[in-house]
Simulated scan of single mutants.
Amino acid sequence: MKHLQYDLYRNTDTTIFEFKSVGPNGEITKIITFNATQSKEIYNLAFGDLIYNEVQKKYTLDDSTITDNGDRNIILATVAKSVYLFTEKYPERMIFFKGSTLGRTRLYRRAISINLEELSETFVIFGAIINEFGNVTSVPFKTNGDFLGFIIKRKEL
């Protein structure tokens, strides 16, 4: 991608990524994970701040925090970079993601829309909707679509 990105550190399976957001609120550790779903070919992308949970006495991913570090576009480009790396290793896997709020889901739709030409060179992109039977299904991505989330699949070369 042509946008500024943070350095990513990943585990050997390329399923967990870590990077530092740097801005006026300091250095904040961010985590991206790719987790299996009930469907063996679909993986959920989760993203957020790494925080220590005092009750559970362990680190967890918090996707509801708003850190407002002034680096939103760099963060989005870094998350996109993790998708490129994950699907490079696992091209047969699809990735599902959505925002933790409707506003964040709209932000992701705008980010995809702005970068659609570049993303479409490598990925097939779908929007997730609820169909007339109440089931979640995928439809081709449209820049003005109202989606619950998104599904991305690396194109076969």
Rank of each mutant, 00 (worst) to 15 (best):
G103W: 06
E118I: 10
L148T: 08
S120M: 06
I31T: 05
F150L: 01
V136H: 13
N35K: 14
H3A: 12
L45S: 01
L8C: 00
I95V: 13
G23N: 03
P24N: 15
G70P: 06
T14F: 11
L8V: 02
E156Q: 13
I152T: 01
V55M: 14
T14V: 13
S138C: 15
N35W: 08
S82T: 00
N69I: 08
G99S: 04
I112C: 07
F133T: 14
R72D: 07
M1C: 07
E118F: 08
P24Y: 14
R109T: 04
Y9I: 14
E121G: 07
L157P: 07
F141Q: 00
N131W: 06
R72V: 09
R10G: 02
F96N: 02
F97I: 01
T105C: 05
E117H: 11
N69M: 08
N53W: 12
R93D: 05
F126C: 03
G23I: 00
G48D: 02
R109C: 00
Y108Q: 00
Y59C: 10
T122S: 09
G48T: 05
L61V: 11
F19P: 00
T12C: 12
L119Q: 06
T33D: 05
S21R: 01
K20D: 12
N135D: 15
L50D: 05
V22R: 07
V136G: 08
S82C: 05
F19L: 00
P91K: 09
V22C: 10
I75D: 03
Q5E: 10
F86G: 01
K153F: 06
M1D: 04
E41Q: 09
S100P: 00
E88S: 09
F34G: 00
I129G: 05
E92S: 15
I151F: 04
N144F: 08
F141Y: 03
F34C: 04
M1H: 11
F147W: 00
L85N: 12
T12Q: 15
E88N: 15
F126I: 02
I42M: 04
E18G: 10
T14H: 09
Y52F: 12
A80S: 09
Y108F: 10
I151V: 13
T60R: 14
